[in-house]
């Protein structure tokens, strides 16, 4: 099988450590154009580190990384990637409005040039897509956790990326925001974007996912179609405890 278009992500034999402790021990990960890949695994299995290796914020000790067919070292087309980090909070030490935070997603487009009308229009579109346009002038610190997550997703969408990378987008997100997130993801996939998602469990996004890659102790334990309704829970050694059963998301897409 030969792909005319190179994969959005091709990570080969990735080895990385954090704080001297090896976290990835030879991870292979490919995201083909238009594909939605879920990265699953228990806490500490290396999911987040894999994603951070893909965006280059954790350096690889061994292995190779290609983005859209270009080796990481010479990759410059950052406008093709939208990244949603694992959220602690979208707020920082100084107040910032929703619009200001989302506008940073356009930096790959306007660079050192002034922010123009079309940048502004893109910010409006992205905010509208996540249902936060009416809160554009509000401070991000005044939003709920789920709303902050929507803002971070809008920030990733504002450059209309070809590859969307999301680290635990469903963690601590209320039902309304989960629905918005699922709808947004579906329309992005419909547009032809590839998606790499870190998830703790498949949950309501399951119908959208083409392939699941399960990590265990920094190695790939499974790479194939998602196992319906079970996800991580079917794997041996899973000891996840649900501390807030009353917030378990309803099956939005089922």
């Amino acid at each position: 099988m030969t792909d005319p278009i190179p994969p959005a992500v091709r990570l080969r034999d990735a080895v990385a450590s954090r704080g001297g402790r090896p976290v990835l021990r030879g991870v292979d990960l490919t995201v083909r154009p238009g594909e939605v890949v879920a990265l699953l695994g228990a806490n500490g299995s290396g999911k987040s580190t894999t994603v951070k290796a893909v965006i280059g914020s954790v350096p690889l000790e061994q292995g190779t990384l290609e983005l859209f067919g270009t080796p990481y070292g010479s990759f410059r087309a950052w406008h093709r990637i939208g990244y949603v980090p694992q959220r602690t909070t979208a707020a920082s030490g100084v107040p910032a409005t929703v619009r200001e935070v989302v506008s940073t997603g356009r930096l790959a487009q306007h660079r050192l040039l002034p922010f123009r009308r079309r940048d502004r229009a893109a910010v409006d579109r992205a905010l509208d897509a996540v249902g936060m346009l009416d809160r554009a002038g509000d401070g991000v610190a005044d939003l709920s956790g789920g709303q902050q997550q929507r803002v971070l997703i809008a920030r990733a969408l504002v450059g209309t990326p070809d590859l969307l990378i999301m680290d635990e987008p469903m963690a601590g997100v209320d039902a309304a925001s989960q629905q918005v997130l699922a709808d947004t993801l579906r329309s992005e996939v419909g547009r032809g974007a590839s998606v790499l998602l870190v998830l703790h469990e498949l949950g309501p996004l399951e119908p959208l996912i083409d392939r699941a890659v399960v990590l265990r102790d920094g190695c790939v334990a499974h790479d194939g179609p998602p196992v319906p309704n079970t996800g991580l829970h079917a794997l041996p050694g899973h000891d996840h405890v649900h501390p807030h059963a009353d917030l378990t998301p309803p099956r939005l897409l089922a």
Binding site: W78, Y83, A96, E100, T104, R111, L112
Partner: peptide
């Protein structure tokens, strides 16, 4: 201002915008 705001707001994200 926009670049410095981005790196102080979210360093990892700023890296992915090519800053």
């Amino acid at each position: 201002r926009r670049q410095l705001f981005a790196i102080c707001q979210d360093e990892d994200f700023a890296r992915v915008t090519g800053v």
